[in-house]
């Protein structure tokens, strides 16, 4: 298992946002998370990528425990040094891209590999250029983020995450901030990564994409996993009433 999330609980001042969520992600798996706005999808990704701390439960990466609930019922994390190792396993692509505006596209991709991972500059730049080529934006290496379209920026953000060679890549609604005509180019590169068996967890509202690309779909509502399974089953034959209701909205 790349990732194991067990009985994850998360509150924001009294408001229970994640209520006992458990799921695993196996190597090479592509998991889509769907669900209405406010159901806790982003919070779940943020807990998995250590941007939020869980209140209870267990997070395991590559068989190692990053956080668990101790005897007193509180979630405890490993120390800073260990946590950095766990962080290096996961990448996150944000809805709003969050590129570094003062760095060129190339530097957005090489700065962390060089200064966080201590890789050689030449090697980091070569890797970056290969990734940009793969994303179809090699000609933008010397541009700055503000000079790119949203779709191009998001592809840079994906390349930036991949440059760190994560074991698993999380996407939080990667196309929601894009104009409709630009979503295709971003979905295409994610699909390409799926074909290469990159382990991914994608929060998305693009149902046809989720159905076509993922190995498993998780439907979340109100901080719980209502239903999960093979995309064909979940989309064509949902078992739970809430899932049916939610999917009906997308059928038109």
């Amino acid at each position: 298992m790349i990732l194991e999330m067990r009985n994850i609980q998360k509150q924001f001042d009294g408001l229970e946002v994640l209520k006992d969520i458990s799921f695993d992600v196996d190597k090479g798996e592509v998991v889509s998370i769907i669900g209405p706005s406010g159901s806790g999808k982003s919070t779940l990704l943020r807990c998995a990528t250590f941007l939020e701390t869980i209140d209870g439960g267990e997070i395991r990466y590559m068989g190692g425990t990053a956080a668990h609930t101790d005897g007193s019922g509180h979630a405890v994390y490993v120390d800073q040094k260990e946590l950095r190792r766990f962080r290096s396993y996961c990448g996150l692509v944000f809805q709003q891209f969050n590129l570094f505006p003062h760095y060129s596209i190339l530097k957005n991709l090489t700065d962390a590999p060089i200064h966080v991972q201590g890789r050689e500059k030449d090697e980091a730049e070569q890797t970056a250029l290969e990734l940009l080529t793969k994303m179809g934006i090699a000609d933008k290496a010397d541009a700055y983020p503000y000079q790119l379209s949203g779709g191009q920026q998001q592809r840079v953000a994906i390349a930036r995450a991949l440059a760190m060679r994560p074991k698993i890549l999380f996407f939080d609604e990667p196309t929601s901030a894009l104009d409709p005509e630009l979503t295709g180019e971003v979905l295409k590169v994610i699909r390409q990564l799926a074909e290469e068996h990159m382990t991914m967890v994608v929060v998305t509202h693009e149902m046809p994409f989720a159905k076509a690309v993922s190995n498993r779909v998780i439907f979340m509502d109100g901080g719980v996993i209502v239903e999960q399974g093979d995309p064909k089953d979940v989309f064509e034959n949902p078992q739970e009433e809430r899932t049916k209701q939610f999917l009906r909205v997308f059928e038109r």
Binding site: N98, H115, V116
Partner: peptide, 24 residues
């Protein structure tokens, strides 16, 4: 979100400030 992007990429607090925040 700039801090968060840096954190996910593994930058330390000092690196985040010196490399990402301060120049901006």
């Amino acid at each position: 979100s700039q801090y968060e992007a840096a954190q996910v990429l593994g930058y330390s607090k000092v690196q985040t400030f010196m490399r990402i925040i301060l120049p901006q």
